[in-house]
Simulated scan of single mutants.
Amino acid sequence: MNQVSDQVTLKPYEPADRGWLVAQHAQLYAKAEGFDDSFGVLVESILKEFEAAHDPACERGWVAWAGGQRLGSIFCVRAGEGLAKLRLFLLVPDARGLGLGQRLLDACMGFAREAGYGRMTLWTHESHEAACALYAKNGFSLVSSTPVTSFGQALVEQHWERQI
């Protein structure tokens, strides 16, 4: 693991992280892909639902921290019997390419295995090339690709899945 990634602490998600996560998702996706304000609204609703109803035995969120700064997040939530869903995987631009994405993914998949899930699913967009490459490298298979209009943009939604 790279030296910078080794200095990062993965802390459990707390409601105090919500504002940062909503702002980062909204700003980064607006800048990179032109997403409209509906994306931040979606992220906030996902986080509020997680705070209100998650089961800590089988659902967890992590926020990566270094030097007093948040660098990213990943969540594992229940999507059905034996099925975990990876959500809200984000790295700020300065934290990309340092091995932190793999570390977050490893934490999420390890937790899912320990919680008794047999499979993991995720939803993303084709334009997220680095994330898709990371998923493929880690044994996820592309299940479907669907052209859609979401967040004010023409996108290709992708559904990935793997056994864990």
Rank of each mutant, 00 (worst) to 15 (best):
M1W: 13
N2V: 14
N2G: 13
Q3D: 15
Q3G: 12
V4N: 12
V4T: 15
V4R: 09
S5Y: 05
Q7D: 15
T9C: 13
T9H: 13
P12Q: 14
D17I: 02
R18V: 05
R18Y: 04
V22K: 02
Q24C: 11
H25V: 05
A26I: 00
Q27D: 15
Q27L: 13
Y29V: 07
A30R: 14
A30G: 15
K31I: 15
A32V: 14
F35L: 09
F35R: 07
S38W: 11
S45C: 09
I46H: 11
E49A: 14
A52M: 13
H54Y: 03
H54D: 02
D55G: 07
R60H: 08
W62F: 06
Q69C: 14
R70T: 11
G72Q: 00
S73A: 12
V77L: 09
G82S: 08
G82D: 04
G82R: 07
G82N: 03
A84T: 00
L86Q: 00
L86C: 01
R87F: 06
L90P: 02
D94A: 08
D94T: 06
A95E: 02
L98W: 06
L100D: 05
L100M: 08
Q102K: 14
L104N: 00
L105M: 07
A107P: 01
M109G: 02
A112F: 03
R113V: 14
E114M: 13
G116T: 14
G116F: 08
R119I: 04
M120A: 15
T121L: 12
L122T: 00
L122P: 00
S127F: 12
E129F: 13
C132L: 08
L134M: 14
Y135N: 05
N138S: 08
F140V: 10
S141T: 14
L142D: 03
V143N: 06
T146G: 07
T146D: 13
P147D: 13
P147H: 09
S150M: 08
F151D: 08
F151C: 06
F151V: 09
G152I: 09
G152M: 11
L155T: 02
Q158R: 14
E161K: 06
Q163Y: 11
I164N: 11
